[in-house]
Amino acid sequence: MIAMLGRDLALGVRAGGGFGLGLAFFLIVVTLVPFGVGPHPDLLARIGPGMLWLGALLACLLSLDRIFALDWEDGSLDLLATAPLPMEGVVSMKALAHWITTGLPLVAAAPALGVLMNLPAPAYLPLTLTLLLGTPALSVIGTFGAALTVGIKRGGLLLSLLVLPLYVPTLIYGAEAARRGAAAQAYGTPLMMLAGITCGAIALLPFASAAVLRVNLR
């Protein structure tokens, strides 16, 4: 399983663009927001946490179809399914690799992009904290969506349609906690709920993803 993770990370770094692409997309989305809503610092500071969350979510979504598509095309997925690794483990490692290559850089970049959004000083800690807690859920849920659509040609759009509704609770609690943090209110409750969703998703969704992947391989 560690070999699995190592391979996916190596692929993510070497496969040209996979690693930085999500990050660049995140930057572009955040740059475009002021063009869309106007450059007023107050307005930007108010919508900043939400926009950063939305940007991170979209950047995450963008790279989901790569999770299984390449392994599906070159036959690795068939071979992995017949290998002694449990499918649940394979799926979890895929999600973890996706998080390390996509989610973690987003978390790291978010404070820097927060500057572009004129975020007030107390907003940075809750923003980073919510993204750190929330992005794993995005990766795990996205892995489920990717497993559902792995056999479908041009499944990218369908993948978005399936995954985005599943992202709703994560986004609501994450953005709400970040917003409350930015407004210097208590944000413990939404943060707990976010952590709960992340833990639940990590614990349960790999079983669904693995089941769905087995169906798709047959």
């Binding site: 509704p165 709703v168 609501i172 969704l205 089941a211 798709n216």
Partner: peptide, 28 residues
């Protein structure tokens, strides 16, 4: 059969997330 299997799992997972969304939206 593949479609039936996949949509059934989606329905199950979707139900859980629909309930979660309901509470999240109430909170929001």
């Amino acid at each position: 059969d593949t479609a039936a299997d996949l949509t059934s799992v989606l329905c199950l997972v979707g139900s859980v997330f629909a309930v979660l969304s309901r509470y999240a939206v109430l909170f929001w």
